[in-house]
Amino acid sequence: MTDLPLLSVRSATRLYGSRVGCEDVSFELYPGEILAIVGESGSGKTTLLNCLSCRMALTGGSVSYRMRDGAMRDLATLTEAERRFLMRTDWGFVHQNPADGLRMRVSAGANIGERMMAVGDRHYGRIRQTAEDWLGRVEIPGARIDDRPTAFSGGMRQRLQIARNLVTGPRLVFMDEPTGGLDVSVQARLLDLLRSLVGEMGLSAIVVTHDLAVARLLSHRIMVMKEGHVIEHGLTDRVLDDPQHAYTQLLVASILEV
């Protein structure tokens, strides 16, 4: 990790009329760091993720990102074209439902290749070879390169979505409940894969999850949200092994001992 933050969040607030989506959230994310945002349904974690990733406008506060030239830019000041370019190149977004992050009517190879073309690659042979390589990296047989995601299982679709996001070497990946809706055995394989890829590529990531086991396995730091507010924030092992806030203690205590 470097001394300079990749993402700087100051008093981020999103209101829905009189209802709080998230309020007064501040933190910094550094290169190579994984932050987990946890909390029950309605805690504000997905609203915050959508604000951080420019999918939703802030009501107040700011989110700044360090561009590749080293300049820190307030995301609210970017043009729509600049934002779209950032989302196609520097950022990835892994949806809970892979159908939201894939083009279901084109092949697995085309899903990966489309992302490569967004950063200017036009060499068909290289695109196809890279797509096949990435299918192997996410444990999908290369022979399935011309199959559509509609023919894949839920776990395979999620792995394809990860390949599509990571093929361009993004610097920051947003993940919204990446293992939600998958069988426990499929979840475990996917988490191992995510952890190895993120570590190998030195990515920064923000992971929203209600599953503390996912947070423990993937993240360096954890932020606990309740009713739109951050109530505890610290190193993952410290927060989960010695929670200070009564709500965090309740969350940790609710994990069934196997």
Rank of each mutant, 00 (worst) to 15 (best):
A76T: 10
A215L: 03
G136R: 09
A215P: 11
L48S: 03
R10E: 14
T209A: 07
T130W: 02
V186N: 04
I255C: 12
G17L: 10
L172T: 08
A76H: 08
L7F: 12
W91N: 00
A188V: 13
L78M: 14
S43K: 08
L203T: 06
L193D: 13
R148S: 12
Y124R: 15
E80L: 11
W91R: 00
M201Q: 13
E227L: 14
L218M: 13
A12W: 09
L75A: 01
L251M: 11
S107N: 03
Q96I: 02
V20Y: 02
H210G: 11
R148P: 06
L240G: 07
P149G: 07
L251G: 05
F27N: 04
I112N: 00
D24M: 09
V173R: 00
N111M: 02
L203F: 02
D176H: 01
T46H: 04
I127T: 05
T77C: 01
V25H: 03
S153H: 04
G120H: 00
S64C: 11
A205G: 11
A213K: 07
D183A: 13
G202H: 02
V20C: 06
P243T: 09
R105F: 14
P149Y: 03
A12E: 00
G21E: 01
V252S: 08
G154T: 04
E139C: 11
G228K: 10
A205P: 09
R216L: 05
R66T: 09
G169V: 12
D241L: 11
D192N: 15
A110R: 10
R137V: 06
P141D: 12
V20K: 13
H229Q: 15
G21Q: 03
A81P: 00
T2S: 15
E200Q: 12
P141R: 04
A71Y: 13
V38S: 05
T59K: 08
L251Y: 05
L29D: 03
R189T: 15
G17C: 08
S41V: 10
L182A: 07
G125Y: 04
A163E: 07
D74Q: 07
G181E: 05
G199A: 13
G109I: 00
A12N: 02
H123S: 15
R171Y: 06
G154H: 08
P98T: 04
R19A: 15
L135K: 01
T89I: 05
Q187Y: 01
R238V: 14
C51R: 09
S8R: 13
R157W: 02
R68F: 09
R144T: 08
T47R: 07
E257K: 12
Q187M: 05
V230D: 01
G155N: 06
V106M: 11
D176I: 02
C22N: 12
R19C: 05
I37W: 05
I127V: 14
R148N: 10
V138N: 06
Y16H: 15
L256N: 10
I162K: 00
L6R: 05
M87I: 07
L212M: 07
N50H: 13
R105E: 09
V214M: 03
I127Q: 01
S53F: 11
H95A: 12
N50W: 06
F174N: 01
L193S: 11
Q96R: 03
A151E: 04
T179K: 01
T13P: 03
V258I: 13
D100L: 14
D176T: 08
